[in-house]
Amino acid sequence: MQRILIIGNSGSGKSWLAARLAEQLTIREVNLDTIVWQPGGFNQKRSQDEIDLAIKALAQEPSWVVEGVFGALAEQLLAAADLLLFLDLDWSVCRDSLLSRGSQSAIQRDAIAAEENFQQLLVWASEYELRASKSSRQFHRELFERYQSDKHHFTTRQEVNNYLTQLTTHS
């Protein structure tokens, strides 16, 4: 387990899981948001060239835990990954998680814009099941089905916690 890819909806617990795995395995943690968005918020995308270069470079690194909802980017890392984790939690769980996390406006440059972005995120995340893009549940399922190496599909927080506990006791 040197290259772990975690996919799922916003609020599914990808960042939480990635942080724990990275700490336990002492490998780099990468949130795809940091590759897609300019620093200071989630309202300015990097150029596609910058994103593509960062993904290509990341794919060459010997170890990482990468997490994100961006299926198109996850797809580019799939061949380099040796473990795929799909957090396929119910929207109500994701919504509650997002609401408890809040807009994170205090750590962004523009608190008003951050709050507006958060409201947009809630709407966007609620459409995970309906979207036709590569950031949809359907596409994440397709990535999961296509992936031929070690993979795990989680539908509850308890399953994720059990998996982590199992890793801790066997490492």
Score class of each variant (00 low, 15 high):
L77D: 09
I27Y: 14
Q24A: 14
S103T: 08
N162L: 10
G8C: 12
L99Y: 06
G8E: 02
A74F: 02
V30I: 10
A111M: 07
Q158W: 11
V30M: 11
G71A: 14
D90E: 15
V36Q: 12
I55K: 04
A132G: 15
Q120C: 08
I112P: 00
E50C: 02
E75D: 10
R157W: 04
E129A: 13
T169F: 14
L32T: 01
A106C: 06
L17E: 01
H140T: 14
S149Q: 15
L83P: 00
S100F: 07
E67N: 11
L143R: 08
D52E: 14
A81I: 00
H140N: 09
Y163M: 13
F139C: 10
D88C: 09
E23R: 05
Q138I: 12
S126C: 06
G68T: 06
L78P: 03
A80R: 07
D33Y: 03
G11P: 02
Q148E: 11
L58Y: 01
R3L: 10
Q2I: 00
L122N: 03
A74H: 02
G71T: 15
W16A: 01
Q108P: 01
Y128G: 03
S103F: 13
R46F: 15
G102D: 07
N162F: 14
D96F: 14
R141I: 15
W64E: 12
A22F: 14
E50R: 01
L130G: 03
Q158E: 08
T34N: 15
W16L: 05
L73V: 07
T155N: 11
L5E: 05
S133D: 13
W37L: 01
N31P: 02
W91K: 05
P62Q: 12
S105D: 12
E61Q: 15
R146A: 07
D88Y: 05
L167C: 10
S171C: 12
E145M: 08
C94M: 03
R101P: 00
Q148Y: 02
G68E: 08
L164K: 01
G40S: 10
R131V: 09
K151V: 00
Q119Y: 13
L73D: 04
D96I: 04
Q158H: 11
E142I: 15
L143K: 09
Q120P: 01
N31L: 08
A54F: 09
H153Q: 10
L98G: 02
D150P: 06
E67T: 01
Q76I: 12
D90H: 13
A113L: 15
V30P: 02
L99W: 08
T156H: 06
D49C: 07
T169W: 11
L89R: 11
L164T: 00
